[in-house]
C-alpha cells in the first residue's frame, strides 16, 4: 500500500497507528515538505511516540524541548511551520490537543 492510500483522519494524520512504520514516516515527511529525516528528527519523532504511548497525547513543546534534548530553536528549524503538529503527523499520531 502506498502512503496516499493509507486511511487519514480529518486533520490528515494517520487514522490507524498500526499503519505507521519508518518508511511511512519518511513519506509523510516528504508530503510535509521536509527533504530528509536526520537523527535529530528521529529523536523528536521517537520521543513523541513514547510520550503518546505513556500519556495518550503528544507532549507540549515545553515538555518536548525540556526532555528530548532538542531545544526550541532547533525544533522550529527541524520542523518549520508548526513543529508540534508536523512532528506528530510524521510520527503517525493524531494532532496534539494541548495549547502550549
Amino acid at each position: 500500500m502506498t502512503t496516499a492510500e493509507l486511511q487519514r483522519d480529518a486533520d490528515g494524520h494517520l487514522a490507524n497507528r498500526a499503519d505507521w512504520n519508518e518508511q511511512v514516516a519518511r513519506d509523510i515527511a516528504i508530503e510535509e515538505g521536509l527533504e530528509a529525516l536526520t537523527d535529530r528528527h528521529w529523536l523528536v519523532i521517537n520521543f513523541m511516540r513514547k510520550e503518546f504511548d505513556a500519556r495518550g497525547d503528544a507532549p507540549s513543546i515545553r515538555k518536548l524541548t525540556k526532555e528530548s534534548g532538542v531545544d526550541t530553536k532547533e525544533l522550529y528549524a527541524l520542523f518549520p511551520k508548526g513543529p508540534a503538529k508536523k512532528a506528530a503527523k510524521i510520527a503517525g499520531l493524531p494532532k496534539p490537543k494541548g495549547c502550549i
Partner: peptide
Amino acid sequence: KIDIPPVREFLEMIHDAG
C-alpha cells in the same frame, strides 16, 4: 500542572520560536 511556563521562560520559548 498544565505545563504553562512562568513568564520569563514563556518569553524565552516564544522568542526562540521566532
